[in-house]
Design a protein around this nucleic acid. Structure first.
Length: 220
DNA sequence: GGCCAGGTGTAAA
DNA sequence: TTTACACATGGC
């Protein structure tokens, strides 16, 4: 059993605090969580800038705006038809519950989010952690890949989430920072291919030494 | 030009 | 319960 704490400390030392999630408001954070689904964050920033310019960073304005206009603003983030609908659904749900604050204060927030079509476990968890500030660990594609390569740990979303939450103290700031650091590591050193140059976890990575013989270890 | 990026819903094996 | 596929733009 390897200590996730050690990995966390190494990443923090290498990259410094990430201070996620980058956003001005809780609602903007939630919008970003939907827009970033399976897409590079650079694309999301362009879309969020568009929304900001159009005054579309409130649940009310998104609910009222013409669908075509919303689609055009969201376009740079890809999957723009789906994502526009998802933003509309989320906004309506927020308004139904009296606004962003009361919506985020619901004690079954995660379950509520999961009933909204287009919000799955990762998007829900990221909103619960970064917008509502409640301790739930976020699992993403990078986290799965890193755990598989470095720890040899695989499993479903729920299993990975449980693994992290059992190994770590239930600390919101730790959860926020750890997830952000894993994404940073993923972007810089742990992509799909075996191009791990300069990875701060190289000494712990069980696939690092077998790159040349076992390319297959890097798939998925 | 091909691969990849901070997923999710649906359908079929 | 797992696996395959559609969804779409932009950077390298």
């Amino acid at each position: 059993m390897v200590s996730l704490r050690i990995i966390y400390e190494k990443l923090l030392y290498s990259f410094g605090p990430q201070n996620w999630w980058p956003s001005d408001t809780d609602f903007e954070m939630m919008v970003g969580a939907i827009l970033t689904q399976n897409v590079n964050w650079n694309n999301v920033e362009t879309a969020i800038d568009n929304l900001k310019d159009e005054g579309l960073l409130t649940p009310k304005s998104i609910t009222e705006i013409d669908m075509k206009k919303l689609e055009m603003a969201v376009k740079p983030s890809g999957f723009y038809r789906q994502k526009s609908k998802r933003l509309k659904r989320l906004s309506e749900e927020i308004l139904n519950r009296g606004g962003v604050e009361p919506f985020l204060a619901e004690n079954n927030l995660r379950e509520n989010l999961l009933t909204i079509k287009g919000i799955g476990p990762e998007t829900a968890d990221s909103m619960v952690l970064y917008a509502a500030g409640k301790p739930t660990f976020v699992i993403d594609a990078y986290t799965k890949r890193i755990m598989k390569r470095v720890e040899g740990v695989t499993g479903s979303y729920r299993e990975l989430k449980t693994y992290f939450e059992n190994e770590l103290p239930k600390d919101v700031d730790l959860y926020k920072e750890f997830h952000a650091l894993l994404v940073e590591l993923g972007k810089k050193h742990c992509k799909k291919g075996p191009d791990c140059e300069g990875c701060p976890l190289a000494s712990r990575c069980r696939y690092m030494s077998s790159i040349s013989k076992d390319q297959d270890a890097f798939t998925k």
